[in-house]
Design a protein around this nucleic acid. Structure first.
Lengths: 202, 202
DNA sequence: CGTGAGTTTGACCGTTTGGTCAAATCAAAG
DNA sequence: CTTTGATTTGACCAAACGGTCAAACTCACG
């Protein structure tokens, strides 16, 4: 096990390679579907060497998940109470959609976890996620009461944004199977933009 | 192995119990996460007895998936070309949402499969699913050209319906973590109804 | 009640998998 | 160059897992 002193050059490089490889494998196969051999080989290391840097498969998974959760909520946090309501929400939608395009593995890793009951992250959801969503829905409700956007159920509004945007990463194969050659991300932004403009127009 | 004659009373009962148990386990754990012991015990059988009725884990999974796919597209098929456009689409949305409420395990099984790249059902998607969606989007485009509903990208309209409705089954734990005690299905139907009315109003 | 087909199971097997360990190799500082 | 700690690996282990098999048991029917 690496000492708990300042990480060496090699430690930094290998830890990063492992997390990258683990994201690849876990997002594509799920926790139980992934094997240490797959991750090790994807990271260019031997299996015992893998376990020199992380004590267990569980620990690797948690590290990957922790890094993901840390940035996953940034787009929601960035909604500005002082901005224009409709534009703030539309900007949030665009950021989320862009994350589906740019970080599909992260989205699928998260989806895998939730679909299977979120055994390892439920506490984070009902604490950090809930309080953040509570805060933002309160803001949205204020905007609605002021008549600056239309009145709809604020929580379900947020759920709809999550589902619409993440769907393009999580259900990618299904969408491509139906669309054929067309790139989903050509028309999706305009469609979703229109959808929320019509839903929220005061 | 059961003979290929007409199934006996016991065969019918046990096959049904196995498929029911397998749906439970596969939808909650994914294919690799599920074990034959779990399925056998959930079905009230021993593992060798399980394998007396199905030749392999693979075969059980395929049987469950086949039964699912058979009914999964019924709501979409039921869209009536001679009905009122907006009401037909809203009825489709309602049927899909009801399926999320009544058959969450089926939805999650499907989600598990798709998120992990749909290795076993990709052919079905790009054949059966694609041709059905092609047919219905053509119909929807006709309605749009006639000015009976607003013009939006018909494929993304369908994707949005899938994502919004299935989200309530697939991401159930996340939604409940955020909502607390409130039942998601109390407000979801009205929210989604409003969303599509505003999106599609001519 | 006897009989043959249908059903169930305990014991077992080979493979995969997460994980260990001692020994070997490498890197950096004096 | 030497030393010391960091890194790497081949060999190995125990548990879990999918699957097999022969023997035992049960059921329906004449």
């Amino acid at each position: 096990m690496p000492s708990n002193r300042a990480p060496t050059r090699i430690q930094k490089k290998n830890r990063a390679a492992i997390l990258e490889a683990a994201l690849d494998v876990f997002s594509a196969q799920g926790f139980r579907g992934a094997t240490l051999d797959q991750i090790a080989s994807a990271a260019g290391l031997s299996k015992p060497n893998l376990l020199y840097y992380f004590p267990s498969k569980e620990a690797i998974h948690q590290a990957v998940l922790a890094r993901l959760l840390d940035t996953w909520l940034d787009p929601l946090r960035a909604i500005d109470p002082d901005g224009d309501p409709l534009e703030e929400i539309l900007a949030y939608v665009r950021r989320k959609l862009q994350m589906s395009r740019d970080y599909p593995r992260e989205s699928r890793l998260f989806a895998n976890e939730i679909v299977q009951g979120a055994p390892r992250i439920e506490p984070v959801l009902s604490r950090d996620l809930k309080s953040l969503v509570d805060e933002k829905t309160t803001l949205i409700e204020t905007w609605m009461r002021q008549g600056r956007i239309a009145q709809v159920h604020p929580y379900h509004l947020v759920f709809s944004i999550w589902s619409l945007t993440q769907h393009y990463a999580d259900f990618d194969v299904q969408i491509r199977a139906v669309l054929g050659d067309e790139d989903p991300f050509d028309a999706a932004p305009a469609f979703i933009d229109t959808l929320y403009r019509r839903l929220l127009a005061p």
